[in-house]
């Protein structure tokens, strides 16, 4: 898994490539949680290059969402492949993670 991070104004955009599972979710956690703790509250996760997410990956995203909630922050997912969207549906996480089509739509939603 590879995470490309950029920051445009006060929005943190994480583009995640590869597999998010028990072997890689810890890396994402290390890149995400300290940034939230440093008072960043707006995150876009671009999943266009994400191939697969397991329960370990979902767990890390939920931990981040829970933390962001404490700071009234927002995390929007975009460009999510159908299979991965279905995994979120199966896990009951669609109400927690807003999913939009592309990064532009994510930026619009996060600024609402």
């Amino acid at each position: 898994m590879q995470v490309n991070i950029e920051k445009i104004e006060n929005i943190n955009i994480y583009s995640i490539e590869g597999n998010l599972d028990s072997n890689t979710s810890g890396d994402l956690e290390k890149k995400l949680i300290p940034v939230i703790d440093a008072n960043n509250t707006k995150f876009i996760l671009d999943f266009s290059e994400l191939n697969y997410i397991s329960s370990a990956g979902l767990r890390v995203l939920l931990g981040a969402a829970k933390k962001l909630n404490q700071y009234s922050g927002k995390m929007i997912l975009c460009s999510v492949k159908d299979d991965i969207k279905e995994v979120f549906e199966i896990a009951g996480l669609l109400p927690i993670f807003p999913i939009v089509d592309d990064p532009e739509a994510a930026a619009q939603k996060i600024l609402q």
């Binding site: 028990s22 072997n23 979710s25 810890g26 956690e29 397991s54 329960s55 370990a56 767990r59």
Partner: peptide
Amino acid sequence: KDLSGKNT
């Protein structure tokens, strides 16, 4: 609680 490989 921690599903990372090193913990499981």
